[in-house]
C-alpha cells in the first residue's frame, strides 16, 4: 500500500462570515495526482492555501511529518514590476547555484536562460520557471493553482508533459486546480469537485459524468465548451 501523506477530515473554512468549504474529507497517498474542479469562487484556491497552511480552518489536516510543499499561485500580477532576472528570482529561495542550475535543466531550460528578465518571458516559459521555483527545495507535494491559465495550446502541453515527467522522476504528489477537463482525464487519478453547496470526489471516469458536471458548474459548462 502506498504511503499516506495527507489526511483531511471534516474540513471547514470560513473567510469572514462566508463559509467557503464545508465538511470536506479526503486522503492523499504518495504519487497521487488530485485535481480540484469547480466554478470560480467554489473554494479551490482556498483549499490549496489551507493545505499550504496559510489560511485558518476548523477540522483536521494531518500531513506526513516533515512534508515539504511546493506552491505555485494562480496569478502573479506584480512580478513584472520587479525588474529581475530568472536567476535573481529563484535565488530568493537561498539555494546553491549548482542546485538551481540542476533544477532548470530538469524543467528543460538552457543554462543561459537564467539570465533572462522575468518580464520578457512568455506565459509558458514563466510557468515553467514557477515549476522550477516550486521544486527548488525538493518538495514531496506540489500545489498548483491553474497552471495553464493564459497559455496557448502548445504551451499547455509542454507544461503538463513536464509535470508528468517530474511526477514520475520524483514520485511527486500533485494537487492541481484546473478548468481543463481533458487534463483531468489524462493527468489525474483522483478528482474533487467543489461548489458552495456540495462536493463530489472519486476517480475521474466515475465522477465526471455530464450530470455531475452540470450540477457542479451549472451554466458554466456550456460557456467552457463554447470557448474550447
Amino acid at each position: 500500500m502506498a504511503e499516506k501523506i495527507l489526511d483531511v477530515k471534516k474540513l471547514n473554512v470560513k473567510l469572514g462570515e462566508e463559509e467557503i468549504i464545508k465538511d470536506l474529507s479526503f486522503q492523499l497517498e504518495k504519487g497521487d495526482a488530485l485535481t480540484l474542479l469547480g466554478p470560480n469562487g467554489a473554494g479551490k484556491s482556498t483549499l490549496l492555501k489551507v493545505i499550504l497552511g496559510v489560511l485558518p480552518y476548523t477540522g483536521s489536516i494531518e500531513k506526513k511529518k516533515g512534508m515539504k510543499i511546493g506552491y505555485v499561485p494562480q496569478r502573479l500580477p506584480f512580478i513584472k514590476d520587479v525588474p529581475m532576472s530568472v536567476r535573481e528570482f529563484i535565488k530568493i529561495k537561498e539555494q546553491s547555484e549548482e542546485k538551481i542550475e540542476k533544477i532548470f535543466q530538469s524543467v528543460g531550460f538552457e543554462r543561459n536562460f537564467l539570465e533572462k528578465q522575468i518580464g520578457t518571458l512568455s506565459s509558458g516559459q514563466f510557468q515553467r520557471v514557477l515549476i522550477a521555483w516550486a521544486l527548488v527545495k525538493d518538495p514531496e507535494v506540489l500545489l498548483f493553482d491553474e497552471p495553464t491559465t493564459g497559455i496557448d495550446i502548445r504551451g499547455k502541453e509542454t507544461v503538463y508533459r513536464l509535470l508528468e515527467k517530474l511526477k514520475k522522476e520524483r514520485n511527486l504528489t500533485i494537487v492541481l486546480v484546473t478548468h481543463d477537463l481533458s487534463v483531468v482525464f489524462k493527468f489525474s487519478n483522483y478528482v474533487i469537485c467543489l461548489n458552495r453547496f456540495s462536493s463530489c470526489k472519486g476517480k475521474p471516469r466515475e465522477i465526471l459524468t455530464p450530470e455531475n458536471l452540470q450540477s457542479i458548474y451549472g451554466e458554466e459548462v456550456k460557456f467552457y465548451k463554447h470557448h474550447n
Partner: peptide, 17 residues
C-alpha cells in the same frame, strides 16, 4: 530585501516560505 520582494510578488508564496 529578497523577503520583501517575494511578499510584493505574492504574500501566499512568501507565507509558504
Amino acid at each position: 530585501y529578497s523577503k520583501l520582494i517575494l511578499i510584493n510578488i505574492s504574500e501566499d508564496m512568501a507565507r509558504a516560505e
